[in-house]
């Protein structure tokens, strides 16, 4: 069974997914970060494939991507780093990246390498649902890799249902119409949107992302969805200068969000 499906089967609430940028802060940090995140209680990790032109991302993730590229990160190298991480890493892993580097590798080759590395799902923000359905859905099924799709507060109801039907593993609820890391609060209109999605009784579980940065926003999100995704706040936390090791930074961050 796909590890994402198993996670949602086994855990009903407060699922915490953390976004990292591959090759950030240091080129070789990808795997140690995965180890630390698993050890300290992240339920799932989204590994960002750095891209020169990440147009859905705010300043924090843009900068981490640029630094990762300067560090020498490439998609091919990322797959090499991920070789052999299973079974030591047991939590579900998702690759999140823009379409161009994936197409450059070739979608089928990319999915084949995902399967071989034990990647459970991918998120490609600039691959539209219709294009995915028409061109790639069968390939994703062949390789057993989920493609998780996004909805926003402005997505209309019938489109939400269509996207939810197509979305693999879970549905990514973008909390606000924004790029990543732009908002740090969950306001009333978002609560209303989360409630609306919750009440639709969609066939896939939802995770809320964009604007989740700490324990209060995490808990607010968990009231309406099975859990939440934290990206920019985590990237900022591990990028801060100081004497703490990467493992200690991860531990401190997860503990704060978990409230332990």
């Amino acid at each position: 069974m796909n590890r994402i499906d198993r996670l949602f089967q086994e855990k009903q609430g407060e699922i915490l997914s953390i976004y990292i940028t591959a090759g950030y802060p240091q080129l070789a940090d990808t795997v140690p970060l995965l180890e630390a995140l698993q050890k300290h209680g992240a339920d799932m990790v989204e590994i960002g494939i750095p891209f020169s032109d990440p147009l859905a991302d705010g300043a924090v993730i843009q900068e981490s991507s640029q630094l990762a590229l300067r560090n020498g990160m490439k998609l091919d190298l990322l797959f090499k780093q991920l070789e052999g991480i299973r079974p030591a890493i047991q939590i579900p892993l998702i690759l999140m990246g823009y379409l161009n580097p994936i197409l450059k590798m070739g979608m089928e080759r990319f999915l084949e390498r995902c399967r071989d590395a034990g990647i459970d799902g991918v998120i490609v923000p600039d691959l539209p649902p219709a294009e995915y359905e028409a061109r790639y859905l069968e390939l994703f099924r062949t390789y057993g890799v989920h493609n998780t799709l996004l909805i926003t507060p402005h997505t209309e109801e019938n489109r939400i249902r269509r996207i939810a039907d197509l979305s693999g593993g879970f549905l990514y609820l973008v909390a606000d119409a924004s790029t990543t890391g732009m908002r740090n609060i969950i306001g009333d209109h978002q609560m209303e949107y989360f409630q609306r999605i919750h009440d639709m009784g969609l066939p896939v579980p939802g995770l809320i992302g964009f604007g989740i940065s700490n324990r209060p926003t995490f808990l607010a999100a968990c009231k309406y969805a099975r859990g939440a995704i934290i990206g920019s706040a985590f990237i900022r936390a591990i990028g801060e200068p100081g004497n703490l090791s990467l493992d200690q930074k991860v531990e401190g961050f997860i503990k704060e969000v978990r409230g332990v």
């Binding site: 147009l55 539209p128 649902p129 294009e131 996004l150 926003t152 997505t155 209309e156």
Partner: peptide
């Protein structure tokens, strides 16, 4: 051509 845009831009 086409419109390869994130869902946030769809509307």
């Amino acid at each position: 051509g086409g419109a390869f845009i994130p869902e946030m831009l769809y509307p």
